[in-house]
Design a protein around this nucleic acid. Structure first.
Lengths: 205, 205
DNA sequence: TCTTTCTTCTAGCGATGCTAGCCATAGCGG
DNA sequence: CCGCTATGGCTAGCATCGCTAGAAGAAAGA
C-alpha cells in the first residue's frame, strides 16, 4: 500500500527534483538563445553551451534529444512570441487612429519586421536553420498556426482570397527580413518598401 | 635570355597544365553542385567531394581557399544563370501575347520561382547559406546586379518607385521560394499567390 | 642521367555532435 | 543511525568535420 501511495502522490523530494529539472531546462534554452544572439548560431556548440550552464555536455542530452531539438524548442517559443506581438500590434492599432483603414495591417507588418531585426538569431532558428519541424498542413505546431492567424486577421474580414493574401504577405515580410539580414537588400528605403507592400496587399482594386 | 623567353611566351607544357587545372576547377564545382543537389549541402564534405573528383582533399585547397569559397563560386554562377533566365523570360514573353500588359512581369516571376524549385541546393547557396559575399551597395558582384536589373526591367519603364518595387518583388519571390522550400507555406495555391503578387506589384492605382 | 621544381598524397591537428560506462551522492528500508 | 540501492552527473572517448604540414612522387630542364 505504501508503494501505491508513493506512486500516487509523488514524494516531495521527487517533486522538488522535477522543479529543479524544469529550471535547468529553461536555463539551457535561455543560455542557448543568449549565446546565439550574441555570437551567432555557429558559436553555439554543445561544449560552450554546457560550460555556460555549468554542467557537462551529457546533461544537455538528458533534456533534449540533440542540438537540433534545442533550436527547435527555441523556434517554437519564437513563434508564440511573434504571435503575441502581432496580435497586440493589431489590437492596439485598431484602438488608435480610425481614419487609416490599413493602420492595423501596417502595425502588424512593422511589428513583424521589428521582431526579425531585434532577434535575428531567434528569427533564423524559426525560419532558416535546418529543422525537421513539420509545417504547412497536418499537425502544424500550434504556435506557428497562431502566428499565421494573426497575419490573416490583419486583413479585413471580407477580403477576397484572404488566406492566400496572408500567405503572400508573410512571404513578402519574410523575404524582406531574410534579404536585409544578409545584406542583399539596401537598408535604406525600408519605409517605401513597406508602403508599397501595404498598398499592394490590401484589397482595393 | 632564355629565362626571359620562358617567362614571356609560357612553355607549351605550362599552357597544357593550366588548361588541365581549369578543367579540374570546373570538375570540382560541378561535382559539388551535383552532390549538393542530390543529397543536400550537409552531405557535401571535403572528403566526399575529393573522393568524387578522384583527388585528395588538399587539391581542393589549391583551387579554393576553403569550402566556403566553393559554395560562393557556385552561388556566383547561380546568379548569372538566374539573370539569363529572367532576361530571356521577359523578352520571349514580350514577343508573345501583346494583350496582357503584365505578361513580361508574370513570365519573369514564373521563371524565378521555377529556378528556385528546380535547383533548390543552388538557390540555397545563393540565398540562405552563410556566405561573406558582399551584397547591397558597394562592390556588388556583377552577376547579382545583373539578376536584380532583370527584375527591375520586368516592371514598366515609367513605374513610380521602380527600384523599391523591384526590391519588394524580389523579397516576395524569395519569401515564397524560401517558405515553400521548407514546407512552411502550402504547395497548393501557388497560382493564386502569383496572381495576387503580380496584381499587387504592378503599378495601376 | 642527374637535379631541381612543382604537384599530389599521407597523416595528423583541433573542434564538432554525441555516447558508453564509471562514480558519487541522495534517498530509502531497516 | 546505518547500509543498500538506484539515480544523476561526469570523464573519457568515438566518428567525423574543415584544414594543413611535411613527405613522396612525377615531370621538366641541364
Amino acid at each position: 500500500m505504501s508503494s501505491s501511495a508513493r506512486i500516487a502522490v509523488m514524494s516531495v523530494t521527487q517533486n522538488r527534483r522535477e522543479r529543479e529539472r524544469a529550471q535547468r531546462h529553461r536555463l539551457i534554452l535561455t543560455a542557448a538563445r543568449e549565446l546565439a544572439e550574441a555570437e551567432g548560431w555557429e558559436a553555439v556548440t554543445t561544449r560552450r553551451l554546457a560550460e555556460r550552464v555549468e554542467y557537462s555536455q551529457p546533461v544537455l542530452y538528458s533534456h533534449f534529444t540533440g542540438k537540433d531539438a534545442i533550436v527547435a524548442a527555441l523556434a517554437q517559443e519564437g513563434f508564440t512570441e511573434l504571435a503575441d506581438l502581432l496580435r497586440t500590434a493589431r489590437t492596439t492599432a485598431a484602438a488608435g487612429q480610425e481614419g487609416d483603414p490599413n493602420s492595423g495591417l501596417r502595425a502588424v507588418c512593422r511589428a513583424y519586421l521589428h521582431f526579425a531585426t531585434a532577434h535575428p538569431a531567434l528569427y533564423q532558428a524559426m525560419f532558416v536553420l535546418p529543422t525537421q519541424l513539420k509545417f504547412a498542413d497536418q499537425e502544424t505546431p500550434t504556435p506557428l498556426r497562431a502566428a499565421f492567424d494573426a497575419l490573416v486577421e490583419a486583413l479585413p474580414e471580407n477580403t477576397p482570397d484572404r488566406e492566400a493574401r496572408a500567405e503572400l504577405l508573410w512571404a513578402a515580410l519574410h523575404g524582406i527580413s531574410a534579404l536585409s539580414a544578409t545584406g542583399r537588400i539596401p537598408p535604406h528605403g525600408g519605409q517605401t518598401r513597406l508602403d508599397l507592400l501595404i498598398d499592394g496587399i490590401a484589397p482595393h482594386h
